[in-house]
Amino acid sequence: MLIFIARRIGTMVLTMLVVSLILFLLLEINVEGVAIKVLGAFTSDQQREIWLEENGYFDPLPLRYARWVGNAVVGDFGESVRFKVPVSEILLPRIWSTAVLGFWALLFASAIGLFLGVIAGMREGSKLDRTVSVGSIVTTSVPEFASAPLLSALFVFYLPQTIGWGLPGTSSMSSGFDWVQLILPVMVLVLYDFGYIARMTRASMAEVMMTHYIRTAVLKGLPYGTVIRKHALRNALIAPFTVIMLQINWLLSGVIVVEFFFAYKGFGSLLLEASLNQDIFLIEACAMVAVFVAVATQTLADIGYTYLNPRIRFS
């Protein structure tokens, strides 16, 4: 088990290194381009030359990469061109905001997805099962950038007009943190994400219900509820654990759209802003953080799956 964990973490570090190399080459191999992006298009060649010289851009490429990685590991990504402050200074509060948003989205998506998946998988082929299956196909077919305007139209436009109650249409949190402004973004993310979790849970549950030990438990006269709770669920929920962990990778994509739509000051909108403004050090930092989160959750999912599944754990 320890060897397995060590190997997974090793793969994770290797992946991060390769990703960082790709990012570095993609964004910084053209030294002249870096100078233009940092200093602006209306600078003389001489200015750019001086800046490049000062920041060690004429050193050999491997040395520059090594220095860049070294700085990145301790969280120093340089200074943001757009915000004129060190990247880490803007990055940390933004990551925290997104973590809050992502936590609630994941919590509700998992709870709803697991519940629906379990009750659908309990009786495969029943009317309830078909309803949940088709229903989750429908909700996963509405992309975030479509459900956000649709839900906004409903909660910000039609409901206030008809019943006099609605939700705020933006989540910029301009006057401090406000729970109410979090409702719509979370709703959009949950609506798109729970369907996949429900379908995967359903498949896993349906598979467990077909096994011999469930049949035995039913035939020896155990109450149905006990069979589900004690025999089926514990085995059926192993696979969804992985699904939920991997869902974080997808959530990061959805977060970008939702934060952009609701003007939520989080990590996703920061990445988008950095890309649209060619703020290269900020792009690098955001991309590294995003990939780190994705790879770390993947590793955790693998380790967790191995730990939860006794058949693998003891072999």
């Binding site: 990703v19 990061l252 955001c286 995003a290 990939v291 993947q298």
Partner: peptide
């Protein structure tokens, strides 16, 4: 490596 990127990123 490619799949470790969040798609939209």
């Amino acid at each position: 490596v490619i799949l470790s990127f969040p798609v939209l990123v």
